[in-house]
């Protein structure tokens, strides 16, 4: 894709309808992944991702193209997820993460990959909400530390140290699984 997300929304603000479709194609999986890794079911994650686009569409006149659009959309997603968690009863591990019985179709086809994904998903589920969100934004969404700090309202230095600490912890916990896979791939 030649244009970035910010350009897409700017084009859409100028009346280019196809720009919104491109934006959805580019950011849709990331948003669905955000909600899924936060603990939402697959269908719920997709529904919430659509809500993010709806909110972005409704508030498109207030968006200033100076910032990163993916950070803007992830900020909307974060607020939506917080609202969603407030409305429903508190999350428990057994209900939200796929190490328990999950009747929703899994997004991964390969059996071995599915095992690794479930293990990693379960490990993420054992983290507290703030840490899991930090991992999501900094590692999976690969936002700059500055953006992560702004979204989570914590200093950049804190973001860096916490990300480093969490990665070390997860590595100790998951390296036997993920490391063997990477060795096999190699």
């Amino acid at each position: 894709m030649s244009t970035g997300p910010s350009d897409l929304l700017a084009r859409f603000q100028e009346g280019d309808a196809s720009a919104f479709n491109e934006l959805v194609k580019e950011m849709g999986p990331r948003l669905k992944g955000y909600f899924f890794r936060q603990g939402a079911q697959s269908t719920t994650a997709e529904d919430l991702a659509q809500h993010v686009f709806l909110k972005a569409f409704q508030s498109r006149s207030r968006y200033q193209s100076s910032g990163r659009l993916d950070a803007y959309l992830l900020r909307i997603a974060r607020n939506l997820w917080i609202d969603y968690c407030r409305r429903r009863r508190p999350l428990t591990l057994g209900e939200s993460f796929p190490d328990a019985v999950d009747t929703a179709p899994s997004p991964w086809e390969d059996g071995h990959a599915q095992d690794r994904a479930q293990l990693l998903h379960a490990a993420l589920g054992q983290l507290d909400d703030s840490t899991r969100e930090l991992v999501e934004l900094a590692i999976f969404q690969q936002l700059p530390y500055r953006e992560v700090g702004e979204i989570m309202k914590i200093p950049v230095g804190t973001v860096k140290s916490r990300v480093h600490y969490i990665l070390q912890k997860l590595k100790r916990q998951l390296e036997p699984v993920l490391g063997s896979d990477s060795e096999n791939d190699a």
């Binding site: 849709g28 990331r30 992944g33 590692i139 690969q142 590595k171 993920l178």
Partner: peptide, 22 residues
């Protein structure tokens, strides 16, 4: 740690959207 982060992203990638999402 960078390699481990890549491995994490690879192990748990962004899921595909359903066909009727758009």
């Amino acid at each position: 740690l960078s390699e481990f982060a890549d491995a994490m992203r690879k192990a748990l990638p962004d899921p595909e959207l359903s066909s009727d999402f758009a």
